[in-house]
Design a binder for these strands. Structure first.
Length: 794
DNA sequence: GGTAATCACATTTTT
DNA sequence: TGTGATTACC
């Protein structure tokens, strides 16, 4: 064994070594929670390279950017001593989607795409589907885009395309036939816009690999060793990609844990991992069952729970870690009591020496965070939330990206429609409709139609088409709108011309933000401006990382596939609040899981439980994130969707072995608040009765106002909370009392508008918005903390 | 074209 | 209950 090999294996266990040293042929690593999976994978990559495999022929695929980045870093760390300059190349580490996007870009002619095709995210897709629905003369309110989205996405994940679906739906119900029609039209919208949606990335690559033997061979040749992480979460399309990529050499290494499959509802098929050995005869199977993360008791609880799942590969998790504390199961009265308990415990843990960053609170539903946030804020406990809505979903960012997308791909209709009147420039719905009508009749894109209204500069051509010819009839029909359209076309063209002269993406972004008027539009909105500034920064980072080699198109492709769970930063020194789904892959010394109640976890919608085993796996994931201490809470009553109901403890709690639990009941007796009269009132006429909270308590404070102020402070940051945000908390707390400083009727003097009277006061984010009736200047809405106003006595 | 009022909506959401 | 999104209205 070489010195390098010895180093690679030095601190590994026997099963880990077995996985690492496996070179050729299919390999399945069943890695239990906390069993050192990532370490094993990265070491195996190093091992392959140490054994003569070229780094360039290794492909590692993950599901999240975060996982990909982490793996990249760790592989880099291992490789630097072997090849400091990277001359031997580096393995390809990518997410399924970014890998597909890259390959489709490289072979774009093969799939009929342009080199700079657009990638549509969920909101683009919604708009496109809506457009398609309207175009075939149906009303989107009868055919909600959301319904179609889930069907289309589900089908695409199963490798079913519109044409095939139309065939089967042809005989079916009216609704299904219409759905097929909309889908077909949606594909047209995409094609005209030279765009694909997320699912297409996978679908197209999968089909190309499957149907084009030469292409497949080339890919098999290029990537001799393929690793797929979180294999239990692969859907049909991803399965197919993995399969075809390795069809000729069968060097596929899948790692995952069936017990942590929690994305079935997104099309992930747990059977992909369950039948791996059947799919790949001769598979070497390695089980990593030693857990390095949790205490014995926590592991015992997790193990006892997951044993209730029938559909499962047996795996016995064990650990050499300490016995640890018992798992606390606490029953509280309601969500408010739960939040108080949480804040108490967090404060106590911190006093005991645990940093806030080492604690996490998990929940099944995002809706549960509200009350929690409130109480954490009251106690000045810093926290960060992983929310679905992310930086790149913010309006101003989407607008900016839309401008940039338009420069690269003028046919991108969704991008065009998004910004054609943002900021407002007199191109309303009517004008766009007329243009669209013309475009449809002429068989050209919306941009080309706009270009025919004319401009000073030579037209920006769509996909190499002819420069647009000016159409006077069209101009006449647009009337007043024509001039506005012309100005818009000129603007975009000049931005396009300017972008040619830029070095680096950052310059382009800066130019577009100022030229488009977006920056000016956002200048009064501090948060929006900050976000735009951050976009510029992100572009700058990208430039530096790529050595100023990458194009705007490259960046846009990258950005389209970025989500923001990456924003969760364990270093930030704040308690982490997140859903159980978001928790996968993380670990914390102290974990709370709130809302452990029937109907919440397992979640029940209407009266059907979708898949109780998946819910159990989700709970399992939550439990196994805990390293040392775990607290599970459930409330006796809880309000959800405006309805307060009595709650039963989750059945999952009773599946945990009593020996490792410390069960407490801190709930107040509920019978003395039994108020049948109120019950009806508070239940919205529900006849279930009982167990209601006193209305007086419910409405006692102006918690709502406080909540609104706070939520902007905490969730408005987009990319999570910065240190400055955290330090701002105390200040904001104090300022929050300002609402009462401006009672209605107060006389104020404004530097510009003179004297006025406060008519109305409402909280607005962290600020106080007041409506003031000025003697000169009339009624204005003013942010009291920012406007030059002062109180006038008398 | 911008704001006010009303209305549906409310699991999870790697990309 | 609370929101975000559409619709109605100046």
């Amino acid at each position: 064994m070489s010195e390098v090999e010895r180093i690679i294996l030095a601190d590994l266990t026997a099963p880990q070594r077995e996985a690492v040293t496996h070179i050729d042929g299919p390999l399945l690593v069943l890695a239990g929670a906390g069993s050192g999976k990532t370490r094993t994978i990265t070491r195996r990559v190093a091992w392959l390279i140490a054994n003569g495999v070229s780094p360039r022929s290794i492909l590692a695929v993950t599901f999240t950017n975060k996982a990909a980045n982490e793996m990249k870093e760790r592989v880099e760390a291992l490789m630097t001593p072997l090849d400091p300059d990277g001359w031997g190349g580096r393995p390809t580490v990518a997410t399924f989607h970014s890998f597909a996007a890259r390959i489709l870009r490289e072979f774009h002619e093969k799939v009929g795409l342009g080199a700079d095709y657009s990638i549509y995210d969920q909101s683009d897709r919604t708009r496109a589907i809506k457009l398609a629905t309207e175009r075939i003369g149906l009303d989107p309110s009868n055919f909600p885009p959301a319904d179609l989205e889930s069907v289309i996405s589900g089908q695409k994940n199963q490798l079913v395309e519109a044409s095939e679906y139309a065939k089967t739906a042809g005989q079916g119900l009216f609704r299904d036939r219409k759905l097929a029609d909309i889908w077909t039209e949606y594909e047209k919208v995409l094609a005209e816009a030279d765009a694909v949606d997320f699912d297409d990335l996978l679908l197209r690559l999968a089909k190309l690999l499957r149907d084009d033997a030469a292409f497949r061979s080339a890919m098999n040749e290029r990537y001799r060793y393929v690793l797929i992480d979180e294999y239990q979460d692969t859907n049909r399309a991803q399965y197919q990609i993995a399969h075809e990529l390795t069809r000729e050499h069968r060097n596929l290494c899948a790692t995952g844990d069936p017990d942590q499959s929690i994305y079935g509802w997104r099309g992930a098929d747990i059977d992909n991992i369950m039948r791996f050995e059947r799919d790949y005869p001769g598979t070497k199977v390695v089980r990593l069952e030693q857990n390095y993360r949790s205490t014995k008791r926590i592991l015992a609880a997790a193990d006892a729970l997951i044993k209730n799942n029938v559909k499962r590969k047996h795996k016995g998790l064990w650990t050499e870690n300490a016995e640890g504390d018992r798992i606390e199961v606490v029953r509280v009265t309601d969500a408010e009591a739960e939040a108080e308990l949480l804040a108490d415990r967090i404060a106590a843990a911190q006093a005991g020496g645990l940093a806030f960053g080492q604690m996490a609170v998990f929940m099944r539903l995002n809706a549960l965070t509200r009350v929690l946030e409130q109480s954490l804020r009251r106690r000045s406990i810093p926290y960060q939330i992983a929310r679905g809505v992310s930086f790149y979903n913010r309006k101003e960012i989407k607008d900016a990206i839309a401008y940039l997308r338009l420069l690269v791909n003028p046919d991108d209709r969704i991008a065009l429609e998004r910004i054609v009147n943002t900021p407002p420039r007199g191109i309303g719905k009517t004008t766009v409709d007329r243009l669209a009508e013309y475009a449809g009749a002429a068989g050209i894109s919306l941009w080309d139609a706009a270009a025919r209204v004319g401009s000073d500069a030579p037209a920006l051509t769509a996909s190499g088409g002819d420069p647009a010819t000016v159409d006077t009839a069209l101009i006449e029909r647009l009337g007043r709108g024509a001039a506005a359209v012309r100005r818009f076309v000129t603007l975009v063209e000049s931005m396009g011309a300017e972008h040619e002269t830029c070095t680096g993406v950052q310059q382009i972004v800066e130019g577009v933000l100022s030229d488009s008027g977006l920056a000016a539009m956002c200048k009064d909105d501090e948060q929006a401006s900050a976000n735009l500034a951050e976009l510029i920064t992100a572009a700058g980072e990208y430039d530096r990382d790529s050595g100023f080699e990458a194009t705007l198109g490259d960046w846009l492709r990258d950005v389209a596939l970025v989500s923001d769970v990456d924003a969760i930063d364990p270093e930030v020194g704040a308690v982490t609040l997140m859903t159980l789904h978001a928790a996968k892959g993380l670990e914390f010394p102290l974990v709370f899981i709130v809302g452990c109640e029937e109907g919440i976890i397992p979640h029940r919608r209407d009266d059907s439980v979708r898949d109780i085993e998946e819910e159990r796996r989700l709970f399992f994931v939550g439990i196994t994130r805990a390293m040392r201490r775990l607290v599970l809470t459930h409330a006796a009553i809880r309000m959800l969707h405006g309805k307060t109901d009595p709650r039963e403890p989750s059945a999952f709690l009773s599946e945990l072995p009593a020996a490792v639990l410390d069960v407490k009941d801190q709930s107040e007796p509920v019978h003395d608040t039994f108020q049948p009269g109120w019950s009806r009132q508070w239940n919205g006429g529900g006849s279930r009765g009982g167990w209601q909270k006193r209305p007086a308590e419910e409405t006692a404070s102006d918690d709502f106002a406080e909540l609104k102020r706070g939520s902007a402070l905490y969730t408005g940051g987009g990319r999570g909370m910065s240190r400055a945000d955290l330090e701002g908390i105390g200040r904001a707390e104090q300022e929050s009392s300002q609402a009462s400083n401006w009672p209605i009727g107060t006389l104020v003097r404004h530097a510009k508008f003179g004297v006025g009277k406060v008519m109305k006061v409402t909280p607005s984010g962290p600020y106080t918005k007041a409506t003031i009736d000025f003697k000169r200047g009339g009624i204005k809405a003013v942010i009291m903390e920012m406007a030059p106003v002062e109180r006038v006595e008398g």
